[in-house]
Structure formats: structure tokens, C-alpha cells
Amino acid sequence: MKPLQRILRAGRHLLLYALLALYLSPFFFVLINSFKSRRDIVSNPFAFPEVWSLQNFIHAFQRMGFIPAFVNSLVITVFSVLVIAVFSAMTAYLFVRTDWRFNKFMFFAMVAAMLIPFQAVMIPLVQIYGGLNLLNSLWILIYMYLGFGTSFAVFLYHGFIKGIPLELEEAAMIDGCSRFQVFFKIVFPLLKSTTLTLIILNVLWIWNDFLLPSLVLISPANRTLPLTTFYFHGTYTSDYGLLMAALMLTILPVIIFYALMQKHILKGVMEGAIKA
């Protein structure tokens, strides 16, 4: 390698890693300050803590109600993601394998509804479900996530199921399987990679969502992790150490999930963007 090339190469590496450090620096500041007292944070947010005390974490954990909020988020995300995947795959399967006029209409309606932004329906949504006294429940929120998530999921599965050859299913039908059995025994397992993509995109969406749960979940006991963190910030506005610890507690589960699923997540985002 020529010297000039070598310098350019080194320069590019330096630039990229410096940029990465800059990108991640906000998290770094939250991390080091989460171990410090308010006074130490105000006097110098750059200094490392003199003692690595877990005091802030223990207080934040208890006062924000981390466990209930985490469980709420987990229940909502897991159930929403599962019902969206299973019911949408079934729907897409029916839409691909039968050419009834009503199916075509429904598929078109679902794809067209993807144009409707959440903000365009949030006001009447709250009015209708509030009027029926159905708000303030985790299950109604899961129900709504199914409604908001199914269009894209059906669309995603539709594209993939079209490519599956019919012969397999026909053979199973001859062997006496019902359409329902054919779907769960043969088709759904074949959709594994699409399902994984869908699950990743939906986990990122639902786990982090704020606006919909803030409208639906009224009582503090039902709040998800982002809601709890936000309201916690409203209560302890200037107790920085406590706030930073609360933020770390909220960020940590996501980072662990990312570390475990990193390859799948990046692949899921790529595929989701290409198909959408």
C-alpha cells in the first residue's frame, strides 16, 4: 500500500470511530451521571463518579415502579406481537388462496388504510372507546395494536405466501387435512423468516410507543415503561441522578435485547423497508 493511501485509510477510520463516539456520547453521559449525586452532576457532568454508588438505581427502581411497568410493557408487547402475526398470516393466506370478490376488496381496503396516520383517528378512537367505558385496560390496548398492525402484516405476508407453491398444500388436502390444519402444519412454518421480520419491527414499534398508550392507559398502575419514565421525569424534574438512573433502567432491557438479536434486527429492518 502506498503511504498516501495508508494515511487516507487511517484518517477514514479515525473519522468513523470519532463519529460513533459522538453518536453514543449522550448514553455515556447518562451512564456516568446515573451514579452521582445531584450536586456532583451540576458541578461537573463530565467527571466520573467518585464512588460508584447504586443508590440512585435502587431509589429510581422503587419510586418509578419499575417492575410493574416492565411487566405491563412485556405483556402488551408479547401478546400484541403474537396476535398480529398469527391472525394476519391466516388472513393473508385466505386472501392469496381464494379469489372471492370480497377478499379482494378487503385486501385493497387494508392496504389503502395504511395511508391513514395514527393522528387522523386518535381523537375519534378515544371518543368511541371512552364513551363505551372500554379505555384503561391492557387488553383493549392489545386489541388496538392488532387493529393498527394488521394491515402492514397482511400486506407483508401476502407478498410472501404468493411465492409458496400450491402442490404441498394440495397433497396435504388429499391426505385429508382441513384448510385450517394445512395452514398451521404446512404454511405457517414456511413463513418463519417473514414472521421473524414482522415480530422485530412490531417489537420496536410497540415497546417504544408512547402516544397510543398515553391515551388508552389512564391509571398509573397500567402504565408501560416509556409512560412511567416520562411521568417520573415530570415528578422529579431536577433530581438529575435519580432521573439518569431511571433512563438507564429503561434503556438497559432494550440494549440487552439488541445484543442478543442484533443480526436479526438489522436484517428485519432492511427487509421491512424493502417490502414496504
Binding site: M90, T91, N103, V121, P124, L125, I128, V154, R179
Partner: peptide, 28 residues
């Protein structure tokens, strides 16, 4: 029967969560 078995849940939820609020919104 087949339709309701496969697409019944999504169709119902789709109408009650998106279409109905959307139309009610236009009315509002």
C-alpha cells in the same frame, strides 16, 4: 365460515379500530 375462521378477527378489529373511528372522525 372459512372467511370468518381465517379473516374474521382481523376484519372485525380492522373495522372497529380504524374504519369506524375514521368515519366517525369525518362526522366529528
Amino acid at each position: 365460515k372459512t372467511y370468518l375462521l381465517f379473516a374474521g378477527p382481523t376484519t372485525f378489529v380492522f373495522f372497529t379500530v380504524i374504519i369506524l373511528p375514521f368515519l366517525f372522525g369525518v362526522y366529528l
